[in-house]
C-alpha cells in the first residue's frame, strides 16, 4: 500500500485515494473543431511508461481534491505531489 502525500492533508495511505490516470492529457477546448484522430487520441490512447509518470490522484476519502503526483511506475517511488495549479519542485 502506497503512502501518498496529499498537498492539502499530508501523508495518507493509498486506500484513501483513487487513481485518475495521466495528468498531462489536456481535454480539447469545448466548441472547437477537432479531427476524429485527435479526439480518439484524447479519449482512448494513453502512454504506459516504465519509470516517471505524471498522474492524477483524487483524495476521495479525504478532502476530495484532485492533485498531481510524479511517480515511478516500476518502483512506486513518489518523487513529488502538488496541487493542480502548481508545478513539482524538481
Amino acid at each position: 500500500m502506497l503512502e501518498i502525500k496529499c498537498p492539502y492533508c499530508g501523508k495518507r495511505s493509498q486506500n484513501e485515494f483513487s487513481y485518475g490516470g495521466d495528468a498531462t492529457v489536456k481535454r480539447p477546448t469545448l466548441g472547437e473543431e477537432i479531427s476524429t484522430e485527435d479526439w480518439d487520441n484524447f479519449v482512448y490512447f494513453r502512454d504506459n511508461p516504465r519509470g516517471k509518470h505524471t498522474e492524477l490522484w483524487h483524495h476521495v476519502s479525504g478532502c476530495r481534491q484532485w492533485f498531481k503526483a510524479s511517480r515511478d511506475t516500476a518502483t512506486h517511488e513518489i518523487f513529488d505531489t502538488c496541487k493542480m495549479n502548481e508545478a513539482f519542485n524538481e
Binding site: 483513487s18 485518475g20 481535454r27 492524477l56 483524487h58 476521495v60 476530495r64 484532485w66 493542480m84 495549479n85
Partner: peptide, 12 residues
C-alpha cells in the same frame, strides 16, 4: 467525483 474532476482539473 466526475463533477469534481471537471471543476478542479479541466475547467478550474
Amino acid at each position: 467525483s466526475h463533477l469534481e474532476y471537471y471543476l478542479q482539473v479541466v475547467w478550474p
